[in-house]
C-alpha cells in the first residue's frame, strides 16, 4: 500500500470559504454604515427637494404661480408636503391655504404614518443599495489581490471615488439626476444606456489605475468616451413642470451627497478588507 501526502489546495477549500466570508462581512459592515450616512444626508439635504418636485408633478404646486415655493430651498416650510398632499389635486393657493389653516389631527396622523413608512423604506433601500455597491467593490479588491495588488483604506478611498464616477457621475453626464416632475425618454432605453455607461467607465478607470503602457491609456480613454459619443436617450423638447432652480439644486445636492457617501464606502470597505481574516 502506497501513501502519498498531497499538499495541493482542493478547489472547494476552506480558504475559498474564508475569502467569501471575509468579502461578505467587509461589504455588509461598510455598506450598511454608508447606507446610514446616505439616509441621514438624504433627509437633511435632498428629500425636501423630491417632495417639492412631487408637488409640481401632481399639480399641488404650479410653477410661475408658486408663491408657496419662495425661499423653500433653504427654509423648512415645505417639509410638511407629504405623499398624501401630493396625491390630492389642488392649486398652489389651496395648498398654501391648507397649510395655513392647519390639518386635522386625523390627517396629520395619516401623513405622519405615511412619511414614517416612506422614510423607513428609503433608509432600508439606501442600506441595500450601498451593500450592493460594497459587494462590487470588495469583489474588485479580491480581483486586485489575486494579481498581487493589496487594497487598504487609502486604496479603498480611491476605489470608492472611482465607483462614484462609474455608477453616478458618468451616467449623470447624459441622464441628469431626475427630480420628480422631470420629463425623460423611454425608461428601458435609459436603463440600458446607464448600465453601459457604468460598465464602460468602470472598465476605463480600472485600466487607468492598473493597466500598463500606452495601449492601456488609449483603451481607457476610448471606454470612458464611447457612451458619451453614442449619447444618452433624450426627448426632443423640454416639458418639465418643476422650476429649473429646483431641478439644478436637486442635481447638485444628489451628486455631492453621492461623492461623500461613496468616498466613505470606499474607505470603510478598504479598511474592513485590509483587516486580518
Amino acid at each position: 500500500m502506497t501513501q502519498h501526502m498531497m499538499c495541493v489546495t482542493p478547489l472547494a477549500s476552506p480558504a475559498t470559504d474564508l475569502m467569501i466570508k471575509h468579502m461578505l462581512t467587509s461589504a455588509v459592515f461598510a455598506g450598511f454604515a454608508a447606507g446610514l450616512l446616505a439616509a441621514l444626508l438624504h433627509f437633511a439635504f435632498v428629500q425636501k427637494l423630491i417632495l417639492l418636485g412631487e408637488g409640481y408633478e401632481t399639480g399641488v404646486l404650479v410653477h410661475f404661480n408658486g408663491v408657496a415655493t419662495s425661499g423653500s430651498l433653504n427654509g423648512h416650510d415645505h417639509t410638511a408636503i407629504s405623499v398624501a398632499d401630493a396625491a390630492a389635486p389642488a392649486t398652489t393657493e389651496a395648498a398654501t391655504a391648507t397649510q395655513a389653516d392647519g390639518h386635522s389631527h386625523e390627517h396629520e396622523a395619516v401623513e405622519e404614518g405615511s412619511a414614517l413608512t416612506r422614510n423607513a423604506w428609503t433608509s432600508l433601500f439606501f442600506g441595500a443599495g450601498y451593500v450592493g455597491y460594497a459587494l462590487l467593490l470588495v469583489a474588485g479588491y479580491g480581483l486586485a489581490e489575486a494579481f498581487g495588488k493589496r487594497v487598504t483604506l487609502r486604496e479603498g478611498l480611491l476605489w470608492g471615488i472611482a465607483g462614484y464616477a462609474a455608477l453616478q457621475l458618468a451616467p449623470a453626464m447624459g441622464l441628469e439626476p431626475e427630480l420628480p416632475g422631470t420629463m425623460a425618454a423611454d425608461l428601458t432605453a435609459r436603463q440600458i444606456w446607464w448600465l453601459g455607461t457604468a460598465i464602460c467607465t468602470a472598465g476605463g478607470l480600472g485600466l487607468l489605475g492598473y493597466g500598463k503602457g500606452v495601449a492601456s491609456v488609449i483603451g481607457a480613454v476610448l471606454l470612458l468616451a464611447i457612451p458619451h459619443v453614442i449619447g444618452a436617450p433624450e426627448l426632443d423638447s423640454y416639458s418639465g413642470v418643476a422650476p429649473p432652480e429646483l431641478a439644478s439644486a436637486f442635481a447638485a445636492r444628489s451628486l455631492a451627497v453621492g461623492l461623500i457617501v461613496w468616498s466613505a464606502l470606499g474607505a470603510l470597505s478598504g479598511w474592513f478588507w485590509s483587516r486580518p481574516q
Binding site: 495541493v8 489546495t9 482542493p10 478547489l11 472547494a12 477549500s13 480558504a15 475559498t16 475569502m19 467569501i20 468579502m23 461578505l24 461589504a27 433601500f125 441595500a128 443599495g129 451593500v131 450592493g132 455597491y133 460594497a134 459587494l135 462590487l136 470588495v138 469583489a139 479580491g142 480581483l143 489581490e145 489575486a146 455608477l167
Partner: peptide, 25 residues
C-alpha cells in the same frame, strides 16, 4: 489553483452585488 478559487469567489460576490444593485435601482 489558489488564483482560480480566488477568481471564483470574486465572481460569486460580484454577482450577489450586481443582483442587489439591480433590485434596488
Amino acid at each position: 489553483s489558489s488564483k482560480a478559487t480566488a477568481l471564483m469567489s470574486v465572481l460569486f460576490v460580484a454577482m450577489i452585488g450586481a443582483a442587489t444593485v439591480f433590485l434596488t435601482g
